[in-house]
Design a protein around this nucleic acid. Structure first.
Length: 457
RNA sequence: UCCUCAGUAGCUCAAUGGUAGAGCAUCCGGCUGUUAACCGGAGGGUUGCAGGUUCGAGUCCUGCCUGAGGAGCCA
């Protein structure tokens, strides 16, 4: 440990300035692998980890990754002392190193550039890194999720996730929305439909939020157009590839908006996200071997079908669904495979939806709601609709759903003081990431997934 | 909560009821262009746990534990 600390001090002193001097006193830049092309023909210092290593007697090929890319660094024995070269030979997978060298264009290199190593510092020699370049089972990988994140596939997924989240924020910000985040601790089981995580709140009981929507309705009346973006918790004992106990949702809410407005907003968001990812994250999609031509076909407008029509399609396809029931996972898969872009299913029977859904004036047993089902069998990524704005009707629905009115006083107040029609939706980020990346399980879409029976690491 | 499948070396997997093995990883040696590098050698095991059947169990039976997939529920 003493040696490590000593090494660390040297390391920090050495790398602290943005520009280093090499042993001959020349200035040298520190940079990232993604900027490597700017250094062609000159020297640069890279800091990262050994991704893999091959050797050939007097040559060492070190694949260095730094979070922005991977580059092959080539070290020739003749350029080092025997001691130094032996140290290079001993480098192990995931050892942390700083490497200096001359950047050279090379058609043989995957990224197009290679580095001829002139100097290096080892920060730490990693011992027995558990994730080897061969295959592993999901249980083992999930147990080592903290390390699995370093592999190129997981890295690509999380880069795309980041891009999707940024796109969501840009989309709303550019359209006059205000980000107003809603609480994680809530005093009551909001919608009364799902099982929530209960926790202590000093001498009271609190629940982890299942949706920011009710609070969004309050902020929409204050700001007009709002969205919240945060984690959401469901204590459902769901054990499928489509569920996580903790997931992230972006939820816009717009005053004076109708169901139709919401559908336009939703399809616009999805197209905006896809355009952005296709533009900025092509390399990552390639790592995932995602067929981009399928994503490029997703353009406006999205097909809109009513619940009635959806039931008809499902029954023709052999589903057992009865009118009035909600779709099962299999039903969503069937529907989403019928279209080459996400399909918007609207006007479900009110009985299968939450209490706050505005009834369709033409058929009051239907709710003015919409679910967006992603294509390629991915199913629901968005759920939303128009909310009840009439005080008496809302009160009536609360009672019909056997919910207490007292905790909803503030919510009812919104219908007393300048109520307006309003609508919004929630989009599950992980499901969008899974669809865009074409993953078969939601657990790879978030750094540390919380699944039924797994809360480590 | 229910149904199905699986647990053998650090990892991924073999092994008719009859001497537990391979590839990768690790360690030692070789190679100036490797691309999941390759070649030679070495170490590495209470076959998930507890019982049972049998001359003999990784293999068959019972129970339990753990994991995976799916159902229901949900986004």
């Amino acid at each position: 440990m003493a040696a490590l600390t000593e090494n660390f001090v040297q390391f920090v002193e050495f790398v602290a300035p943005l520009f280093l001097t090499d042993p001959k006193g020349r200035f040298m830049a520190i940079d990232c692998i993604e900027n490597i092309s700017a250094y062609e023909g000159t020297e640069v210092t890279l800091r990262g980890w050994v991704y893999n290593k091959r050797s050939s007697g007097k040559l060492q090929f070190i694949l260095l990754r730094d979070g922005t890319g991977i580059i092959q660094c080539v070290a020739f024995k003749g350029n080092f002392t025997a001691e130094q070269f032996d140290l290079l030979d001993k480098l192990t997978q995931e050892s942390s190193v700083q490497v200096q060298g001359k950047v050279r264009k090379d058609s043989r290199a995957p990224g197009g550039y290679e580095m001829d190593v002139t100097g290096f510092q080892v920060f730490q020699l990693a011992e027995d890194y558990p994730i080897t370049p061969k295959e592993h089972g999901t249980a083992f990988l999930m147990e080592h999720r903290h390390l699995w994140l370093r592999s190129s596939r997981q890295h690509a997924i999380l880069k795309i996730r980041h891009e999707i989240i940024k796109a969501c924020r840009d989309y709303f910000d550019e359209r006059g929305f205000t980000l107003v985040d809603t609480p994680i601790f809530t005093p009551n089981a909001c919608e009364g439909t799902t099982t929530l995580f209960a926790t202590e709140y000093f001498d009271q009981k609190a629940y982890l939020t299942q949706s920011g929507q009710l609070y969004n309705e309050a902020t929409a009346a204050a700001f007009g157009k709002v969205y919240c973006f945060g984690p959401t918790f469901r204590a459902e004992k769901s054990k499928t590839r489509r569920h996580l106990m903790e997931f992230w949702m972006v939820e816009p809410e717009v005053a004076y908006a109708t169901l139709e407005d919401t559908m336009v907003l939703a399809e616009g968001l999805i197209c905006f996200i896809l355009e952005r990812v296709l533009k900025r994250r092509r390399a990552e999609l390639e790592v995932l071997e995602r067929e981009v031509s399928i994503l490029e076909k997703v353009v406006l407008p999205f097909p809109r079908i009513t619940y009635d029509e959806a039931v008809g399609i499902l029954r023709e396809s052999g589903s057992e669904i009865q009118w009035g029931g909600d779709f099962g996972g299999g039903d969503e898969t069937i529907l989403s495979q019928k279209f080459d872009r996400p399909v918007m299913v609207h006007r479900y029977p009110a009985q299968v939806k939450a209490f706050y859904m505005q009834p369709d004036p033409e058929r009051p047993n239907l709710a003015l709601c919409v679910d967006v089902l992603a294509s390629e069998g991915y199913g629901e990524i968005i759920g939303g609709g128009q909310r009840i704005h009439d005080y008496e009707l809302l009160l009536q629905r609360l009672q019909a759903h056997q919910l207490p009115t007292e905790p909803f006083q503030w919510y009812l107040d919104l219908r007393k003081y300048g109520t307006v029609p309003h609508a919004g939706f929630g989009m599950g980020i992980e499901r969008v990431v899974a669809w865009v990346c074409k993953l078969d399980h939601l657990r790879e879409t978030i750094a540390f997934p919380r699944t039924l029976y797994r809360i480590y690491p």
